[in-house]
Simulated assay, not measured.
Amino acid sequence: MNKTRFWVVGGEYTSCDCDTLISGTERVVGPFESRTDAEQTWRSLSEDHRPQAQVRFTIAHEPSMGA
């Protein structure tokens, strides 16, 4: 049985609309085995970049690939 894995993804965007990432600023952190672990990293990254309005991170997940 495969489990769902979680990733923290984001970076700096060209505007506060968060439509287009600035090349070279992309970050992908993970995988995490639980959403709780991913949330801890997401909170830390978000807090570290709090003064930068155009930097955003989110949690993504891979659907489990059941047989």
Results as ranks from 00 to 15, higher is better:
1 M>Q: 01
2 N>Q: 03
3 K>P: 03
4 T>C: 15
4 T>A: 14
4 T>N: 03
4 T>D: 06
5 R>Q: 15
5 R>S: 07
6 F>Y: 11
7 W>F: 15
10 G>V: 06
11 G>L: 07
13 Y>N: 03
14 T>Y: 10
14 T>L: 06
15 S>G: 07
18 C>W: 06
18 C>D: 10
19 D>P: 00
19 D>E: 09
19 D>S: 11
20 T>L: 04
21 L>Q: 01
21 L>M: 11
23 S>M: 06
23 S>I: 02
23 S>T: 10
24 G>F: 08
24 G>M: 15
26 E>S: 07
27 R>C: 11
27 R>L: 15
27 R>M: 14
27 R>W: 09
28 V>N: 08
28 V>W: 06
28 V>E: 06
29 V>A: 04
31 P>M: 02
31 P>Q: 01
33 E>C: 10
33 E>I: 14
33 E>V: 07
34 S>F: 13
34 S>D: 11
35 R>E: 15
35 R>V: 04
35 R>Q: 10
38 A>L: 14
38 A>C: 12
38 A>V: 02
41 T>N: 02
41 T>D: 00
42 W>N: 00
42 W>G: 00
42 W>H: 15
42 W>I: 01
43 R>S: 10
44 S>I: 02
45 L>E: 06
46 S>D: 05
46 S>A: 11
47 E>D: 06
47 E>N: 05
48 D>P: 00
50 R>Y: 14
53 A>I: 08
53 A>C: 14
54 Q>P: 02
55 V>C: 02
56 R>P: 02
58 T>I: 09
59 I>W: 14
59 I>V: 15
60 A>H: 10
60 A>P: 01
62 E>M: 06
62 E>K: 14
65 M>T: 02
65 M>I: 10
